[in-house]
Design a protein around this nucleic acid. Structure first.
Length: 364
DNA sequence: AATTTCCCCAACCGCGAAGTT
DNA sequence: TAACTTCGCGGTTGGGGAAAT
């Protein structure tokens, strides 16, 4: 039953692909398709293992790959999907035509994840960062607002729970309820079951945190591995995501949508703060960072409609072993300055406090 | 100009799932 | 049904270019 090596490693080349190898692989697949990856390299005259060939094809040579920078729309979609699916990169990629799971994964790890951390958002849970909040609770144990009262009334632990944890719970409730709502739309599961499941889950986490404050931050990875994070909300079927288009793509409309999608009692009791899931702010802001000079769509547009492998010129014109994204379409995420701007968009997103004397970057 | 540090991303690795014999 | 093969996924690495010193 054990896994056998994908190929005999002896004598097989590793590392970056040469242009000649790319040509061989493309020529072979053009003629024969890509049925058996194990035998393909031998038949194509390549000194590579099948796995390497498959990766090279799916991540770089495939004709329908869209290269270039991610648009705002794409990034927004990635964040939405990641909040529901977690690191299911292949599923996320399936929702982003022309993007590979590897590309999305890299982009998440190098851009989005860092940005969320800077914003004080946990990129795993899409809620506030527990490490920062835990520090906040230690340093400033005094706040007690209406939101906290709602939560404490619901769980009946007014005097036992650290107020900051209640505040944290409020933030999580907003964030997680968002996910519930998405699932509510995405699935046909009975909404009451869905909500009760998550509410119960959240209360368990809250109570656990309340009773074990010093280790709260340390518990986060454990929670993740135990599939209790919102990223791990179980989908009975990935096809359920196909309905996601019904979900408001622009979260500025979220409040209206929420009112329709959520039972009124939940809206009142569980949602003292309307969720704001717009990581970037308004479209008005968004337009300010569009770089029209990068809107060239000449070479790397998807060739889905072109069955004649029109990729050869565009792909092979770039250095094969170190591909450089040449361009892209749509609105672009362009460089670090825009990332800074994006940070500023999110000033209203955070529904929790990080003491201003704490340098967030110290925790990244 | 030289060196070091940082960052990005293509490619690799190991594992589990699915398929086949 | 066990043994084996193949595929695809997610995590990680390391080479190379850019930025900083």
């Amino acid at each position: 039953m054990g896994r056998s090596p994908c190929c005999d490693k002896n004598g097989l080349k590793k590392g970056p692909w040469m242009q000649e190898e790319d040509h061989k692989l493309i020529d072979y697949i053009k003629k024969h398709g890509y049925g058996n990856w194990r035998t393909l390299p031998k038949n194509a005259g390549l000194q590579r293992c099948g796995k390497s060939c498959r990766l090279r094809w799916t991540n770089y040579l495939r004709p329908d790959i869209k290269r270039g920078k991610f648009s705002f729309e794409e990034e927004e979609k990635i964040i939405q999907l990641h909040s529901m699916l977690g690191n299911k990169w292949s599923v996320i990629a399936a929702r982003l035509p022309g993007r590979t799971d590897n590309e999305i994964k890299n982009y998440w790890n190098t851009h989005i994840r860092k940005r969320l951390l800077r914003m004080g958002i946990d990129p795993v849970t899409h809620g506030p960062r527990l490490d920062l909040l835990n520090l906040s609770s230690i340093l400033r144990p005094s706040l007690y607002n209406q939101s906290q009262m709602n939560i404490s009334r619901l769980i009946g632990v007014n005097s036992l729970v650290n107020p900051e944890l209640l505040k944290l719970a409020t933030s999580f409730m907003s964030s997680k309820r968002q996910n519930q709502n998405q699932n509510f739309l995405l699935t046909n599961v009975d909404q009451n079951q869905l909500c009760s499941f998550h509410v119960q889950n959240q209360y368990q986490q809250l109570m656990q945190s309340s009773l074990d404050l010093p280790t709260q931050a340390q518990q986060l990875p454990a929670c993740t591995s135990l599939n209790t994070s919102p990223c791990s909300i179980p989908f009975s079927n990935e096809a359920q995501l196909m309905n996601m288009d019904q979900f408001p793509s622009n979260f500025s409309d979220f409040n209206d949508w929420l009112g329709n999608a959520l039972p009124s009692n939940l809206t009142e009791d569980y949602a003292p703060v309307p969720p704001n899931y717009d990581y970037y702010g308004s479209d008005q802001h968004r337009q300010t960072v569009i770089d029209p000079s990068l809107s060239d769509t000449s070479n790397f547009q998807s060739n889905n409609s072109n069955p004649s492998f029109g990729f050869a010129a565009s792909v092979l014109s770039s250095p094969s072993s170190s591909p450089t994204p040449l361009n892209s379409n749509s609105t672009h995420i362009n460089g670090s300055s825009n990332e800074d701007e994006r940070d500023s968009y999110c000033s209203n997103f955070l529904k929790f406090e990080i003491p201003h004397f704490l340098d967030v970057n110290d925790f990244i």
